[in-house]
């Protein structure tokens, strides 16, 4: 069990994190840029000192603010870290990079390289590699080291989406096979949902909500969490704010009466579907979005249903005006 409850001082705000990940479990840290996600995994990997608290892995104490001199150094705590920047050693070949860690042998290096489609590049230097190849080398290098916890700090974000998904899927399978605990840092909800069994939403150094990814999306604990998991519509009625997710609002059929009446303001294509921008009229006021398979006529007044949409007390939410 990875158990972390710590604080790391930063210039703008302190990162205060309390989380537990069971052996073989996969946790995603979701949050905007600068929320403290990277600081969290760097603290777990041993690259950042704690101001308060401690990090334990099973019976072992990895870091403690009380006795920093006895912190286990990075690389000796059974925690790996895969970053967005592949961090390949430019003076070494691909094979030497993959086999950099102690104990890795040529056969294993070749095996991992073949598995990741790097067999033909073993003698190449990192400067000649594309972004995707560099990331795969970095991944191969990380997989050479036996770790109890692998932290993934948006490792494939600079790659095109299909390749990033493919590599993340490969990592997930590898982690499942080896029973390795993992923490994924991401700001993409879909990536977090596809990878992790638990989702922690982080904002300005605080975990706002931690739970099953679907639960977090369906029942965000606050308006800020709702914003971070994709809610884009905010309708107000007196002291209440209704949060609407574009995928969870749908028009009701002719003759039926929904909960929200709204007029179509704009229709934009989004992938294979259309996204309608709508202006609510009646009891609820404000703008929201709805994705649909059909187009709509600008100015058309329609009824919409939003089953189980979360409702917040406006006064409780200090996160500013609805977008």
């Amino acid at each position: 069990m990875l158990a972390a409850a710590f604080e790391v001082a930063r210039r703008e705000f302190a990162v205060r994190v309390a989380l537990r990940v069971p052996p073989g479990g996969r946790l995603a840290l979701l949050g905007p840029s600068g929320a403290g996600k990277t600081t969290t995994v760097e603290a777990i990997a041993g690259l950042v000192r704690l101001s308060r608290g401690e990090i334990r892995l099973g019976e072992r104490q990895l870091s403690s603010a009380r006795s920093p001199a006895s912190d286990l150094p990075a690389g000796r705590r059974g925690v790996g870290l895969l970053r967005q920047n592949p961090g390949l050693f430019p003076h070494l070949t691909v094979a030497q990079n993959i086999g950099y860690a102690r104990g890795s042998d040529a056969a294993r290096v070749r095996g991992v390289a073949e598995q990741l489609g790097l067999g033909a590049l073993l003698e190449a230097r990192p400067r000649g590699l594309s972004g995707g190849e560099g990331q795969r080398v970095s991944l191969a290098r990380a997989l050479q080291v036996k770790v109890d916890v692998l932290c993934l700090d948006e490792p494939f974000n600079s790659l095109d989406a299909p390749l990033g998904r493919e590599l993340l899927d490969l990592v997930r399978r590898e982690l499942e096979d080896t029973g390795t605990t993992a923490i994924l840092v991401t700001h993409r909800l879909e990536e977090a949902q596809a990878f992790a069994q638990r989702l922690a939403v982080l904002h300005r150094g605080e975990i706002l909500q931690l739970g099953d990814p679907r639960d977090v999306v369906l029942r965000p604990a606050s308006r800020r969490v709702a914003e971070l998991v994709g809610y884009r519509g905010w309708l107000s009625s007196g002291p209440l704010t209704l949060a609407l997710h574009p995928d969870r609002v749908h028009p009701v059929g002719a003759g039926e009466r929904g909960e929200i009446s709204a007029r179509v303001v704009r229709v934009l294509p989004q992938g294979s579907r259309m996204e309608w921008e709508l202006e609510a009229e009646g009891r609820w006021r404000g703008r929201f979005f709805c994705t649909s398979d059909q187009s709509a006529t600008i100015g058309e007044l329609m009824w919409f249903a939003a089953p189980a949409a979360p409702l917040f007390r406006t006064a409780d939410e200090p996160s500013g005006a609805p977008p």
């Binding site: 990997a45 690259l47 150094p73 990075a74 690389g75 000796r76 790996g80 870290l81 970053r83 920047n85 961090g87 390949l88 050693f89 950099y100 860690a101 102690r102 290098r141 080291v145």
Partner: peptide, 16 residues
């Protein structure tokens, strides 16, 4: 020399 490369070495088990 990029300090991130030194961190990468440390993360792969090297002593300073």
């Amino acid at each position: 020399v990029d300090p991130a490369l030194e961190q990468a070495g440390a993360l792969l088990g090297d002593s300073p």
